[in-house]
Design a protein around this nucleic acid. Structure first.
Lengths: 253, 253
DNA sequence: TAGTGGTCTAGACCACGGG
DNA sequence: CCGTGGTCTAGACCACTAT
């Protein structure tokens, strides 16, 4: 990594710095390697720590760096390809897709979910919490909303509590005939719960995947899954693990 | 919008502020309305401007606000649903899908693209630039890479320059039989070119959609499209315009 | 306890957009 | 020109992790 220069250019310092650091990461650092701490780096480039941090934030957003309080800044591995809705349509909880049911509650969900489900404002809904592990890391947290009317035969005996109850709800759901699904992806920021689950700070960028499952002519379930945007590349179709990388922004000017 | 409080809580000020502002946006502001300027807002909440800005950045990331230098901060409309790969598989440039060819060049692309295409390091590739307009706004910028070998019959006469040339390349491409495609979505940051195209600053968050088109047993084209993450919700499947909103993070604790 | 990244402050100046 | 958001500084203190 260079030394101290950083000429006056009409482009912001933090952006130039980002480019310089990005090139240094390509050529001089190995995955997992620890960078000098922020105060040293800032001094080395002759900028304030806040400016240096702006550059690091960019690189973290792009999945190039990983920062952990109390530990340091390390070079991140290439993003993990995570298959989303691979090979046709199926109910959640079918097969070993990396999802793990955590627990389940019954109640009226938020207004936003009510709107997506198009249920009544008072209609009870099962909310199943799941988390998805890939390559030994939790990459996604999900809330799966299932109107109680979708699983009428669910008995209290089958579903006592926690994960057992969650699995029972999923099992009931799978008895329905899946007629279709649609899906949307957008950028969001992790709320306190998801952040904890994903081992990030609140506000961390996440890719929010909203999937609606249709049965009997209406939405029988809605999944809202938040994926760590820094470490995940969502793949659609069957080639989930093809190595595409050097990432976005590599066509930089 | 409240007044001055903001008690001591174990949660960062900017995060609390984000929540307070978010609720104010829901209840007290209309889409398009201009917020007080940053200095006033910071004073009103009794925090430094930098802290206030951290909260605004979060809200902008979530698509709730729109900030423009020299103008002000306005309440953003709900994200636009943008259909990606709707209704089966087709070559790019087929039909009126909102994409507009801008120009085309011929040369060896970046190493990353060479790796995705699995072309030789020296093989010439057409790079078509397109932009996508939705609801009167440019929502995406794309580079479409097509190995010259994929369109061998392209004549120089058909393709003199600029947009005309770009359309000629696409026309040739469409003569091939599309055998399949796969797609990935990840978070990136806009480079200088894309930022200009999207009317954002460099580094603005974008959703990068990478699509590979297969013909004759190999990748005949690769599209790298960057969508404005603040204004777009990418939809898959056929229900592109269903109104899902109040957005991610509305299930906040 | 020492060292890391995370938060926060109170300023300054710059770049852009619209009168 | 003025007002806006964007950049940058030089500090301070806090929260967390490893030792």
């Amino acid at each position: 990594m260079g030394t101290t220069q950083l000429e006056s250019v009409p482009e912001p310092k933090y952006w130039h710095l980002r480019t310089v650091l990005s090139e240094a990461l390509d050529s001089e650092f190995a995955v997992g390697e620890i960078l000098p701490n922020e105060r040293d780096l800032a001094a080395r480039f002759g900028v304030a720590r806040a400016t240096l941090r702006q550059a690091l934030e960019q690189l973290e957003l792009e999945g190039r760096l990983q920062r952990r309080r109390g530990v340091g800044t390390t070079v991140a591995p290439p993003r993990v390809g995570v298959a989303v809705g691979a090979s046709g349509q199926a109910w959640p909880g079918t097969g070993d897709d990396g999802w793990k049911a955590v627990d389940s509650t019954l109640g009226v969900p938020s207004a936003a979910v009510v709107r997506i489900l198009e249920t009544g404002a008072e209609e009870p809904v099962h909310t199943v919490r799941r988390s998805r592990v890939s390559h030994g890391q939790t990459v996604a947290a999900e809330l799966l909303h299932i109107p109680a009317a979708s699983v009428p035969d669910l008995s209290a005996i089958d579903a006592p509590t926690g994960a057992t109850r969650a699995r029972a709800v999923l099992r009931e759901l799978q008895r329905l005939t899946l007629e279709g699904q649609d899906r949307a992806v957008e950028l969001g920021s992790a709320n306190t719960d998801d952040a904890k689950e994903l081992d990030r700070l609140p506000g961390a960028p996440v890719l929010v995947v909203t999937t609606r499952f249709f049965a009997a002519g209406r939405a029988a379930a809605v999944s809202v899954a938040t994926y760590r945007a820094d470490t995940c590349r969502l793949t659609f179709g069957d080639s989930g693990n093809v190595e595409i990388h050097e990432g976005p922004e590599s066509r930089a000017s």
